[in-house]
Design a protein around this nucleic acid. Structure first.
Lengths: 197, 197
DNA sequence: ATTCACGCTTGACACGGTGTCAAGGTAACT
DNA sequence: AGTTACCTTGACACCGTGTCAAGCGTGAAT
């Protein structure tokens, strides 16, 4: 792909990103995305085989543009189980608003499209690994709530940190991002960390 | 509507219900529903103006068939804030699997269809009232976690009890229904009830 | 200067799913 | 026999996705 080809590709990705960030009010059909990128509808299909792959490519584009790895590195570096859980919630919880637009679109496609389902499941599995690492750290510190299976603890934190819950609290209930993060931290601690604080 | 007309209508509603209960594998297009009901596709449109209205009617049909009011009456009758919260979680949490099929379909439509969005929002608002009543009862007992705004407490319980969370824990994580109910009870208590147990 | 390849545009089309329309059939009631 | 209510059949429009073929402009190689 030549320089101009690469340029067009990123213009499409940016257009897709900004369009999906507008929320569900702004339609993001292939023609809308093409128009927003200042390109013909067919040009989009020259770069991406279908809508699902465009959305998946957009998530990768956002990942790179937002330095998700760096964000998560902080939480990995944190020592001490409960503190590490906090750090992970902060890192992921503050990333949700960034990928929320594409995430919603991808989840909507997942209902009918196998590739979209797989792509989103993959991302969520990666997120789950982060939860699991935090739970392991807590277990090593012997701070896991007595009688709580580590797998189940991971399930719980994973669920609390879901994009849907963020949507529910921030979009539907009108919470601020900061309120969301701090309340989820508290809730996650209450869910999996032993009482003796 | 004559007797035979009413019969056909309920046959369509039952077909829609059972088809949606199969999950996302079984497609539930208008033609599928018609076939399952042993009726022509157009007959469906003679009873329901569009797919959204059919889904909404199906939720009402399920409500009546499942005596949701009776289920919730038990929780309303329970005295003592925390116990009432438990009872509500049990009532609603055990109702989720029943309406889950239609609920999913309706949520999927909500992405594009205003009427579907409104209908689902309405149901969720009703569910929220139940959460709020439990929180009020807890507040009356002076068992609300110190410093916790009652509205925010309702937001939290409402979020915990979302259909999406049920899906996540039961379908994705493989929890049993009983595990789901008891763990959510514990989590809700940890979220909003004062520690002094 | 001509040729060639590349990236893009234009305009057409197929397909699947929703919703609409018109005409006709059938059983029951009168 | 005639009317009415309910249903069927088959056609069609619309919208969004994805495909196809032909053509255009530009820059680089020869």
């Amino acid at each position: 792909m030549s320089k101009s080809g690469e340029e067009t590709r990123t213009r499409i990705l940016k257009a897709c990103w900004t369009l999906l960030e507008q929320g569900p009010d702004a339609p993001a059909r292939m023609s809308d995305i093409a128009r927003a990128a200042g390109v013909s509808r067919q040009a989009v299909y020259l770069h991406f085989p279908n809508r699902t792959e465009l959305l998946i490519a957009t998530t990768r584009f956002i990942d790179e543009a937002s330095d998700i790895d760096e964000r998560l590195a902080t939480s990995r570096a944190t020592t001490g189980g409960p503190a590490r859980l906090d750090a992970y919630i902060e890192a992921w919880g503050n990333y949700i608003p960034v990928i929320h637009g594409v995430g919603s679109a991808l989840m909507a496609m997942a209902a009918t499209d196998e590739a979209a389902r797989a792509a989103w499941a993959d991302r969520m599995a990666a997120m789950r690994h982060g939860c699991d690492a935090a739970i392991q750290a807590i277990a090593r510190d012997r701070r896991l709530r007595p009688g709580l299976d580590p797998v189940r603890a991971t399930d719980l934190v994973w669920t609390l940190l879901s994009v849907r819950n963020w949507e529910h609290l921030v979009s539907d209930c009108g919470w601020t991002q900061d309120d969301y993060v701090s309340e989820i931290k508290r809730l996650a601690r209450a869910a999996v960390v032993a009482d003796t604080d």
